[in-house]
Design a protein around this nucleic acid. Sequence first.
DNA 1: GGACCACGTCGAAGCGCTTCGATTTCCTCG
DNA 2: CGAGGAAATCGAAGCGCTTCGACGTGGTCC
Lengths: 354, 354
Amino acid sequence: MVTLAEVARHAGVSASTVSYVLSGKRPISGPTRERVRASIERLGYQPHAGARALASSRSRIIALMVPLRTDMYVPVMLEIAVAVATTARAHGYDVLLLTGEEGPPALRRVTGSGLAEAVILMDVQLDDGRLPVLRGSAPPAVLVGLPADPAGLNCVDLDFAAAGALCVDHLAGLGHREIAVVGGSPGVYARHTGFAERTLCGLRERAGHLGVGLLHRPCDGSHDAVAGVLARILDERPGVSAFVVQNETAVEPLLALLRRTGRAVPEDVSVVAVCPEAVAAQASVPLTSVAIPAQELGRRAVERLFARLTDPGGPDATGVELLAPVLTVRESSGPPPARPVTGRRAGTPSPPGA
Amino acid sequence: MVTLAEVARHAGVSASTVSYVLSGKRPISGPTRERVRASIERLGYQPHAGARALASSRSRIIALMVPLRTDMYVPVMLEIAVAVATTARAHGYDVLLLTGEEGPPALRRVTGSGLAEAVILMDVQLDDGRLPVLRGSAPPAVLVGLPADPAGLNCVDLDFAAAGALCVDHLAGLGHREIAVVGGSPGVYARHTGFAERTLCGLRERAGHLGVGLLHRPCDGSHDAVAGVLARILDERPGVSAFVVQNETAVEPLLALLRRTGRAVPEDVSVVAVCPEAVAAQASVPLTSVAIPAQELGRRAVERLFARLTDPGGPDATGVELLAPVLTVRESSGPPPARPVTGRRAGTPSPPGA
DNA sequence: GGACCACGTCGAAGCGCTTCGATTTCCTCG
DNA sequence: CGAGGAAATCGAAGCGCTTCGACGTGGTCC
């Protein structure tokens, strides 16, 4: 391994000079700088990360805690993670991957040992167990998500409440009076995952305002689960003419089931999703949807983190940033039918023979 | 920040004694050990990662390079990544997240700077640009995937060729004589991604042996793309009675389309998938499938890496490990119909009005 | 023309840890 | 009963880097 000292010797200067060429923290004359650069290149020198971290007490690493669970939003999670890594690299930082499983101790470990300078947390729950470690500003942190009490925390998220409201606005504007919400898996609600609850609040609040009926059902992503939930919804509220879906994996099953039971989208029922653009655009009926801007979330999280690392008093150094939701109208939403569709209309394939 | 020296002072011993208590590399008497442990606890001491890495020249970090692309197998990738992180932690290591985007320089950077001791690569292509950096054993590395020439490399993967053969065996055993393969997106093949090509080889080879017709078509995951591919397949080879799908996102669209065109699964056509268990089990028709053991792959990759770090001459320290594929029969495969189904049989919903 | 000030460079002192003798103490054995 | 050795501990020398004060050197100012 090539060391700073060897580069210095090769270039005929002192070690500190090489260091200053690298960091630019003191002026070095043009010729010297070039000579040093040449030696670095020539010897293939790479500064030792550990030594650097020790001497400067900055590791140039941030930790990213991703949920271990796989019951929700997997592609979104990966997309955020990749965006975080990419953005961090652009700032000269690397990213350490932590699984949610390890919980608060992992945060203490990586920050307490100086391994990571700061952390980004995903999949934040309303009353997250990791929050106490972060309150105040023990280790600098940014949450992707919004807990119940964000005081003293730095958070970025999509404004899911506004997203919910937007969906209701859109559908109510088209004339729908009864809306059903197909939510994430029950576990998501049981854990009080922020985004799910907030969407629901937004939906309910706006529906209440507009006098629109709203029925919410959590739902697993399996075809059978969707079938069950759909049947129950149609049974309880035959007047439902629109669905809001907040569950990527339930989208296709729902569309398939509606089709199979003779309900045309959007002529008979409208469907609006809260999901990534890619999912909405690729669905069997291109979906009117509120996008989940995964990449943007990852990017902003890192940027807020660096804003805070550089200037702890700056505007982005604390507080909550909610990205405004955008609803894109595609082909899955339209006015409700003149007369509600109450039952099946077209044939289905004959049941499997034995 | 609490240092080793402070712990030593607090416990009334020398710094080296504390270090030996921590590492266990020299015997320390019971009482002393306890006293030191108490001081560590009391002061909340955490060893400084950088200092440790510098002194021992071991960072206790491995790098994981995940593909940036999102055109394929996203949930599988995340699952592997999480398994890698979890397994590495069990060995006392942390995981650095690298995106494929940075390519070979990133590998040089993290290993050359001593940041990571070793690397794990995902999404390996047959002639991967990152391989030259790894040949021989410059930095210890394990690939999840299999390049064209694995000489001198350490690889783990599902035996996709065997998986392909297994699918053909199963279908041919049921009596099918014409099989269509719905593959990954065209980009996957254009990049010569190992697993896709290997599956295809396995399929072709076995089909050739058994005298079964095989038609392969790459396919994007969007509903429209699947519709196009399906139409072309049925047009070219009306005799096709079975499909092998190696594309998670194409599974539901395919099932929906078959249903819509009046082809019952498995009565009229059989479908076999190469995909994660969860996808197969949750599909609208539970799929006969060859599982992609994402977790197992991540786990084995890390274990091989540590085998190599501990004993460079050991059995797992080099070479290729291919996991045997397992085909699980579910409800989507059965004997072909007595007479081939050549066209649509049942009605579809009327086309959308303007 | 001597005092002063950048500018560019060097030397040395750590950063917090590991690790290798060296040292001390206490047994054990012939 | 003294030599030899094992067990337990200490001290010091780095690991490779950053950073601070010091030190020439040349130009500028009155």
